[in-house]
């Protein structure tokens, strides 16, 4: 299964995302921000980092990259897409996901081993989890506070589109403790924590991140 990982100028976790894809049994494919070409991949990870230095607004410049011209319609057509941290911000800026990410409530970058509850285990990136599972995933960001208007939040809750919720304390002030959300179809998922840092024993707080990537491979196999 070919899973593309986009590198923007300032992407940091692209290498880690590729490692995670590999360890999950997929074939990672390099995608370049400047090439409007998805190279025939089956799914895409938009990795974490500081694309374009987070200048203007996190993800606001990356959303206009040539590769996004191909990614947006592919995602709308059902291709599994995972946005992690800066990738989540880019997907929100691209309107593939609702809401926005603003500066952490504490006004500081914060790195911690975060416990999450899997609220929706039927998306393309979570079907390998048990519904309600509690997982520990590395969290590290300065602008991870998820916000949306009340109506959108109610819709997300009502449609089961809140995919992850923070447990044991809200690390950044996200509304309703939301750590990750999905689109109506369940193929596009974005979250602030970093599953790609949790795929190997001894490196990172857990190996709970591996199931994100095995989920996508399963989802693709079942298509």
């Amino acid at each position: 299964m070919k899973i593309g990982v986009i590198t923007f100028p300032g992407s940091l976790d692209d290498h880690d995302a590729k490692r995670a894809v590999r360890l999950a049994g997929g074939d990672p494919v390099d995608l370049w921000h400047g090439d409007a070409d998805l190279k025939g991949v089956d799914a895409v990870v938009v990795p974490g980092g500081f694309s374009y230095g987070d200048y203007l607004r996190c993800g606001a410049i990356a959303r206009f990259a040539p590769v996004m011209e191909k990614l947006v319609p592919a995602a709308q057509g059902g291709m599994p897409v995972l946005g992690i941290c800066n990738g989540f911000q880019i997907l929100c800026e691209s309107h593939l996901l609702p809401g926005a990410l603003i500066r952490n409530e504490q006004q500081k970058f914060f790195c911690t081993d975060q416990v999450l509850r899997v609220e929706n285990a039927s998306t393309a990136w979570t079907n390998d989890f048990e519904q309600g599972a509690e997982i520990t995933i590395a969290l590290k960001n300065g602008e991870g506070c998820f916000v949306a208007d009340a109506k959108t939040l109610d819709e997300l809750e009502g449609e089961g589109r809140v995919v992850f919720r923070y447990l044991h304390g809200n690390p950044n002030g996200s509304y309703r403790d939301i750590a990750g959300v999905t689109n109506e179809r369940g193929n596009v998922v974005g979250l602030m924590p970093h599953p790609e840092h949790c795929v190997e024993e001894g490196f990172g707080p857990s190996t709970d991140g591996l199931a994100f990537f095995t989920s996508a491979i399963k989802a693709l196999a079942n298509v």
Partner: peptide, 14 residues
Amino acid sequence: ITDQYDRYVMGNTA
């Protein structure tokens, strides 16, 4: 202090 630093990036921190 140290929680303001990213200790996980690159995925090689043991």
